[in-house]
Structures are given as C-alpha cells and as structure tokens.
C-alpha cells in the first residue's frame, strides 16, 4: 500500500490486546478522501477498538495511525483537530441543553464567534433540530441524540469522521436521514469510518472491511465482496418460509439456507438445481413461489463468509 495525497486515514499493523483478549491483530487499511469506509463483523470482532485507536482515545500496543499526515500516537492533540469521533455510547452531556452542548464543543474546538452562527444555524436546520435548541440532551429521543452527536462532531468541519455504530437503536426514518447527511459530507471531501451492525447500511459504504477476531478478513467494495459468494443464490418467496428452510437444509447441492422473514435464500452449487428445488417443495406440499436467481444481499455474504472463517 502506498498512500497517496488523498489518503486521510492510514492504519498500519495495529495491535491491541486486553487481558485475555487480542482485540486487534496486525490490522492495516487506508481510507481516501471522500470515502465511506465500513467496518462490519460479529460482536467482539474488534470494531470498537479499531475506531478508538483511530480516534486516539486509546493507544495501540504496536503499529501506527496517521490522520492527514499526522501521527495520532505521537502528536494526538494536533491530529484530533482534524478528527471527529462519535462513541457508541452517547457522549454528550445529558444535563446540558442542545444549544449548550453545541456551544461547548464549539468552544473546545475554538470556533471563532463570528463563524459560529453561519455554521450552527444550517446544521440545526438540515438536522431538523431548531425547535429543540433549549431541550436538555437527556430528554431527546434516540435518533435526535445521534443527530445532536453528529452536529457536535461536525461543528469544526473535521476531515475524518469516526462513527461507532451510530445508528444502533435509531428508527429507520432517522437512519435514512442520518445517511443522507453522511453522503453530503462525503461530497465535501470528508472521510468517514463507520462501524455498523446493520448490513443493509454496510452496502451503502464505498468499501467494507469484514472483521473477524481482530483481523480484517476481506476488504473491498460491496460489489466485489459479493463476487466472493460461492455458487448461485436463489430466492424463494413463501408464506411457509420456515417449512421451506427445513425441507431444503442438507439436501444435495445446497450450500446454505437462510431464512429472511417470508423469504428464503438458498445457495446452490449450480443454477440448474432450481428445477429440483421447485419439484421437491411441490412434493412436500409446501406453498411456495418458484425459486428465482437473485443478487446476494450483504447478509447472505456475511453469513457465508463467516461460515467459511469458522470452518477455518
């Protein structure tokens, strides 16, 4: 990897362990200007630790993090001027109002008073928060808390935004708004590193790192990652999806069966298995639409790749 001029985040050979656990193991990646870089992986894979190492709130045992050419470990205060970090747990003061929180972080980042209004007002407007300015942060809903967190993170126009599961516990509408804001930031050239437990969100990232036990197992664009899926994916819609899953599991040529509400995703070694499957379901007397080849979702991919990891 040879970081170019547009590389804003460069993590190399990061190691971090806690008593009894290796949280991050020889991890390297780079993030370009204007790129949304997603971290996905099961709980305990080390996503939060990676983001904390990038944010400089935790020091790596080994390795370096360079943000816009500044070494975070050696010169944390200067690097932090270009960073914004949103921890997984709400980090603002619940006993301060929306306005007071914003002013506090504007003071901490030394935003001159003349610039404040022209920054704060558009943020409040675009986040739909004007009417809540005087409300205590602790009395906001989950989605609004996250928006307030993002506003405080954006007050100093950072170059790199680090988000640790920002949409967990946020309703789908707020989550869509949240992503709209992320996309507009990206257009302004902000690099975003985001960890998420929602796989449909992961698909919106430019590049994804799939983490497992402290390592990045795969790192590529969502489309390229999907090509790693073995075999072909068939989608079967059925009101008796659970029965479909039961009937097909373990049959010849079937690599995996994934239940998704009233649909079942079946991975097969050969697209021609479709006819066999339709026939088998008819014979079992299960009501189901015929199987249709389909694009793998992030969830299919994720489950498939993790299965491979666990097999070793």
């Amino acid at each position: 990897m040879n970081p170019g001029e547009d590389t804003l985040v460069e993590a190399s050979h990061l190691d971090k362990s806690f008593p009894g656990v290796i949280a991050v193991n020889d991890l390297s990646f780079t993030v370009q200007k204007g790129e949304i870089f997603g971290l996905v992986g099961p709980d305990g894979a080390g996503k939060t630790t990676v983001i904390r190492l990038l944010a400089g709130v935790m020091a790596p045992d080994k390795g370096t993090v360079v943000i816009d050419g500044i070494d975070v470990v050696r010169d944390p205060e200067r690097a932090k001027e270009h960073l914004s970090y949103m921890p997984q747990r709400f980090g603002l003061y619940e006993d301060l109002t929306v306005d007071e929180n914003i002013q506090f972080y504007a003071d901490i980042f030394e935003i001159p008073p003349s610039l404040r209004q022209e920054r704060i007002v558009p943020l409040l407007t675009s986040f739909g928060m004007e009417e809540f300015r005087r409300r205590l942060a602790g009395q906001l809903s989950g989605g609004m808390k996250q928006k307030l967190g993002l506003m405080c993170a954006l007050i100093h126009t950072p170059k790199v935004l680090l988000l640790d599961e920002p949409t967990t516990g946020v309703d789908p509408v707020s989550r869509r708004d949240f992503w709209k804001i992320l996309y507009s930031l990206r257009e302004e050239g902000v690099s975003i590193v985001i960890s998420t437990a929602y796989l449909e969100e992961a698909a919106r990232c430019h590049r994804l790192a799939l983490m497992y036990k402290g390592r990045i197992e795969h790192c590529d664009t969502p489309d390229n990652l999907k090509k790693l899926m073995p075999g072909t994916l068939l989608n079967i819609e059925s009101s008796q999806a659970r029965k479909v899953q039961k009937a097909l599991q373990g049959q010849a040529g079937i690599l995996g069966v994934l239940l998704m509400g009233d649909r079942v995703h079946v991975t097969v070694d050969d697209p021609r298995r479709k006819a066999e499957i339709d026939r088998a379901l008819r014979e079992e007397g299960i009501e189901a639409h015929p199987a249709v080849p389909t694009e793998p979702s992030m969830e299919d991919l994720f489950v498939e790749l993790l299965k491979k990891e666990e097999r070793g």
Partner: peptide
C-alpha cells in the same frame, strides 16, 4: 461513569 469522557478526550483539549 456517564460516558461523556470518551468524547471529551477525543478532542484537542489538553
């Protein structure tokens, strides 16, 4: 205890 420190220490404040 309230988790506000994690955010505060991510800023350039010394």
């Amino acid at each position: 205890e309230r988790g506000t420190m994690e955010l505060l220490i991510s800023t350039p404040v010394s």
